[in-house]
């Protein structure tokens, strides 16, 4: 088995009396697709936030990336080091075009020259198969799917070693989800480790090699997806309610 590329050691996040993330520990192996599931409010996105320093780090615990402790780093430094994420809600720079959005990510995250950023931006948008005619439009005019494509392209352009995706399939149609499924597998095959939070279980189960389920900020179960979904506590907390 490959060495862990990303590791959380007892990370917690408290907001007043609320423990949104409670002593969570897990490690992600280099090259795998690691799924994270859990009911609404279970702390999945907060876990992503504190691992990427956006907008805050953990209240306690440690995050290690490529063997270095990063939980005290500012968010832009974490991103530049190769731990790149997307957001659950539509994150966009509404006044910038898709091309400009990917270019500034290439320039800052990828530290590329203007020319290099322009060329890599085209490649990244090609990779996510974004319609060429839509690339020069301001982002606020793009569809939900195009915004998701753009968010992934702007993360991939800097060639991160880990890509963290926060519910990329939400709001998408079935054909769009199946395109996303294929894209994730391709991205992973290119050597990028993927962390995936997802509500669409079919996507999560089809692409994840390991799965972790959170409930009320703590780890409920972790292991092979087929095993985890059979776990009685998982069925009760998460899957049971859905039939």
């Amino acid at each position: 088995m490959s060495s862990p590329i990303l590791q959380a050691v007892g990370v917690s996040k408290t907001f007043g009396a609320l423990k949104a993330v409670n002593e969570v520990s897990f490690s992600v192996n280099r090259g795998e697709i690691f799924g994270i599931a859990g009911p609404n409010g279970s702390g999945k996105s907060t876990l992503f936030n504190l691992m990427t320093g956006i907008p805050f780090g953990p209240s306690s615990g440690q995050v290690h990336f490529e063997g270095t402790q990063i939980d005290h780093w500012p968010a832009h430094r974490i991103a530049r080091s190769g731990l790149c994420r997307t957001f659950q809600k539509d994150a966009e720079f509404p006044e910038l075009s898709a091309l400009e959005t990917v270019q500034i990510s290439a320039a800052y995250n990828g530290r590329l020259s203007r020319k290099g950023a322009a060329s890599e931006a085209d490649k990244a948008l090609d990779l996510v198969e974004m319609d060429a005619a839509r690339r020069t439009m301001k982002s606020h005019g793009l569809s939900v799917y195009e915004k998701k494509q753009l968010m992934i392209a702007s993360a991939l352009v800097s060639k991160p070693s880990v890509l963290m995706l926060d519910e990329p399939a939400s709001g998408l149609t079935k054909p769009e989800i199946s395109n996303l499924d294929a894209l994730l597998i391709n991205v992973n095959k290119s050597g990028i480790t993927v962390l995936l939070i997802e509500h669409v279980l079919s996507l999560l189960l089809s692409v994840s090699q390991r799965l972790m389920v959170l409930n009320q900020g703590a780890v409920l179960a972790e292991g092979a997806p087929a095993e985890v979904v059979k776990d009685a506590s998982v069925i009760e907390a998460y899957l049971g309610g859905r039939g």
Binding site: I54, P55, H76, A79, A91, I104, S105, Y108, N109, R111
Partner: peptide
Amino acid sequence: DYAASRGI
């Protein structure tokens, strides 16, 4: 936040 996540 999105800007920070892109290295800015």
